[in-house]
Nucleic acid binder design. Structure first.
Lengths: 191, 191
DNA sequence: ACCTCCATTAGATAATTATCTAATTAGATT
DNA sequence: AATCTAATTAGATAATTATCTAATGGAGGT
C-alpha cells in the first residue's frame, strides 16, 4: 500500500532534529556526521540514527572520502514526496484502478504484438496505465536520461513517442527537468 | 520559532489514521465523526482525538448542523504547509532576520509618519519585512479579499499599492487565487 | 602490526501517543 | 423537564522512539 510510504515520509520528517539536519544540508551542501553533531549539539550516534531514517525515505545520500562520510540532500525527491499529500484523494479515487496481475497480463496480451511492440495506445485510463508501466520498466530508476534517449526507448514500442512521453509525465511516472528525465519513486505512480 | 510549527505539521500528518481521514475528506467532502469512524473501523473517541490534532494544525474545520458536526479539509492550507519543507534552508538563512520588538518599534517610528502613513518603502529587506508585517496586521486571517479591497487597504499607508501587494505575495504573507487574496498562516511569513 | 578517526551498533531510559472503554457534555426534539 | 444523539473528556494500556553511554567496526596512516 502506498499510503504507508507517505505516512513514513511524514513521520520521519516530523522530528525537530531531522528537520534541522535537512535545513543544514540544504544550505550547507554536503556535511559529515561529526559536523552535524557539532552544529546541533548532539552526539554522533544520535546523528547516525537520524541519518539512517533519512536515508530510508531516500532523501539523503552519501559520498565517502577516506574515513569521512559526507551526507547530501536529494532536494528533488524531497519536493516530490512533500507534495504527494496534496494528491491523496486522487490516489484513493484510484482504489478502482487497483489491478491484479492477471488483469495486467490480459491487457498486455491484447495490446502488445508478437514482436513486443504496442499495437495501439489504449484509450481507457486503466489499460493505458498498465501499458505505460510495462514500457517504463525498461528504464532505470535513479538514472537521468536526456530526451532523445527517452524517445528512442519509447520508439521500441510505438511510433508516437511524444504522446507516450507526455503521459509518463502526466501520470507522475517521471519528471522532466531542463530537458532531462528521471523516474519518480514508485509510490508516486498511479498504478 | 517557526520550525516547531513545521515539525508539528509533519508529526500530525505522519499517522496512518490521520492520512486516511485526510483522504476521505478530500474525496468525500464534509463528513461527520461517526461516518469517519465507520469507514475506518475505529471508535468515535479515536476520531475525536485525531480530528482535534488536525484542527490544531488548521487543515480541518467544522460546520454544525443540528447534533451533527461535519468536518472539511482546508486544501489550500494543506498545500501551503506541505510545500514549506522545501523552503527550509531559506528560512534558516533568515535566522539573521530575527528581530526584537524594540527593533520593530524603531523601524516603524522611522518609516511611519504622524498620520500613520508610510514615508517610503524601506530598501533593506529586514526593515521592509517589518513594515509589511505592520501593514498586513489590519487584515483578517481566514478571510478572502478581492483585489480592489487589498489595494484600498494598502493605500491607507502608501500610494504604491502594486509594489507592496507584490511584496506580500513574494514574501509569503498572502496568496493570490483567481484575483482573490488571503493571508497565509503566520508560520509561512518570513518574519 | 599498531594507532587514529569516524561511523555505527547495542542496550537502557524516559517521553510520547494511538487506541480502547466508560463517563460526561452539549444541542435538539418531544 | 425528560430524552435522544453525537461529540468529547478521562483514564488506562501498550507500543514506539529520541537520546545517551559504552562497545564495536572499518578504513587509512605510521
Amino acid at each position: 500500500m502506498q499510503l504507508d510510504r507517505l505516512v513514513n515520509f511524514h513521520k520521519t520528517v516530523g522530528d525537530k532534529t531531522r528537520l534541522r539536519i535537512i535545513g543544514l544540508l540544504k544550505e550547507g551542501g554536503a556535511l559529515h556526521g561529526q559536523a552535524i553533531a557539532g552544529k546541533l549539539g548532539l552526539t554522533p550516534p544520535t546523528i547516525s540514527h537520524h541519518i539512517t531514517k533519512l536515508k530510508e525515505i531516500d532523501i539523503v545520500y552519501q559520498r565517502r572520502d577516506k574515513n569521512t562520510i559526507y551526507y547530501s540532500l536529494n532536494e528533488k525527491k524531497l519536493a516530490l514526496l512533500a507534495e504527494a499529500i496534496t494528491r491523496l484523494g486522487d490516489e484513493d479515487m484510484n482504489a478502482e484502478l487497483q489491478v491484479t496481475e492477471e488483469e495486467k497480463h490480459n491487457v498486455l496480451n491484447n495490446f502488445i504484438d508478437s514482436n513486443g511492440r504496442l499495437k495501439s495506445i489504449p484509450a481507457q485510463l486503466k489499460k493505458r496505465l498498465i501499458v505505460l508501466e510495462h514500457i517504463i520498466k525498461g528504464l532505470e530508476s535513479g538514472k537521468t536520461y536526456p530526451e532523445p534517449e527517452i524517445n528512442e526507448h519509447i520508439k521500441k514500442y510505438h511510433e508516437d513517442f511524444a504522446t507516450i512521453r507526455r503521459e509518463f509525465i502526466m501520470h507522475h511516472f517521471m519528471t522532466r527537468d531542463k530537458g532531462y528525465y528521471e523516474l519518480n519513486p514508485k509510490e508516486l505512480w498511479l498504478i
